[in-house]
């Protein structure tokens, strides 16, 4: 038996709902298309390039990469640089930010000067430091002015001094990024917490350890992830200072792509950086998860 449904005037007035694209989708569509075209597609192409030749799937390019005499030194140098540089950078940036918070005279000028390296291209920064560290650079000239014997800081057989030169140049160039994030984070922390701790007689270190740093955690997390990913991409400074004597993974990618004209091995190297960067980000997100808030994202 058929039951006649009562007429529904509303349905005839409103257009059919399913056909309409929700405004949210329309709003994110440009960025989704943009990401798909400029990030998604190249990533897929990169993976294909690293693992496929005319005959189909191959590990030949990965083999070539691993057997290259520069590959393992490059991996070692990149990791070493990150392990030494990141803690130093964070210690420096936090110290500088705390100094700025205590409102010394001309603190705006200080902040401005400290942020200058952020605006410099990294190749330019590398060349600046090259003019300091090379055999006839400013450092050796200054030393000889004091009557001291200079050294070949960037010679291939002096791995330690070469590493320190790259480290100093990178510290100078990239600490400002961390500084700016930390300064922004510090400005978001109300002074009441610190003052309360002071009232209870906490020393400077106690306040730093138990009040400031925990409250800075979200900023530090962002800075850590950003800085580490960028550190994996360190390239131009080391290239300008040491050429190929201090190989880094991204420098090797560049060499395989432009010098040796083998985009396949270059893609394999780029994938190494991608995978390592992703693993580090996941590690940071987990390690710095705020347990009280039941986890971030």
């Amino acid at each position: 038996m058929a039951v006649e449904a009562p007429p529904t005037p509303a349905a005839t007035v409103a257009p059919p709902r399913r056909r309409r694209i929700p405004p949210a989708v329309l709003l994110i569509a440009p960025s989704v298309i943009f990401m798909a075209l400029l990030l998604g597609w190249p990533v897929i192409q990169g993976v294909l390039q690293a693992f496929r030749d005319e005959q189909g799937f191959t590990l030949e390019f990965v083999n070539r990469m691993v057997q290259d005499p520069y590959f393992w030194p490059a991996v070692r140098n990149t990791l070493l640089l990150i392990v030494v540089m990141i803690p130093l950078q964070f210690a420096l940036a936090i110290a500088m930010a705390l100094m700025l918070r205590s409102n010394p005279r001309l603190h705006k000028v200080h902040f401005f000067v400290w942020a200058i390296p952020l605006a410099l291209s990294d190749l330019a920064a590398g060349l600046v430091w090259l003019s300091i560290f090379n055999d006839r650079g400013y450092l050796n000239s200054a030393l000889s002015w004091f009557g001291l014997q200079g050294a070949s800081w960037l010679a291939y057989d002096n791995q330690t001094s070469m590493f320190i030169c790259v480290l100093i140049a990178e510290l100078w160039r990239a600490t400002s990024l961390v500084l700016i994030i930390v300064v922004a984070g510090l400005q978001g922390i109300p002074k009441d917490y610190d003052e309360a701790a002071q009232v209870f007689g906490a020393t400077f270190w106690q306040r730093l350890r138990h009040v400031t740093l925990p409250l800075l955690k979200p900023s530090l997390q962002v800075a850590l992830i950003l800085r580490t990913i960028l550190a994996f991409q360190t390239f131009a400074v080391a290239q300008a200072l040491t050429g190929q004597n201090f190989p880094l993974v991204v420098g090797e990618t560049y060499r395989w792509y432009t010098g040796l004209q083998n985009p396949n091995v270059a893609a394999a190297l780029a994938l190494v950086i991608l995978v390592v960067s992703m693993l580090t980000s996941v590690f940071y997100l987990r390690a710095l998860r705020d347990k009280n808030q039941g986890g971030l994202r």
């Binding site: 090379n134 055999d135 006839r136 070949s152 960037l154 010679a155 291939y156 057989d157 050429g243 190929q244 004597n245």
Partner: peptide, 17 residues
């Protein structure tokens, strides 16, 4: 040992290195 940084020899030669 600085040879690993030399691209064109005319420059270190001219400088007397």
């Amino acid at each position: 040992p600085a040879s690993t940084n030399y691209d064109y020899m005319q420059e270190p030669l001219a400088r007397g290195e």
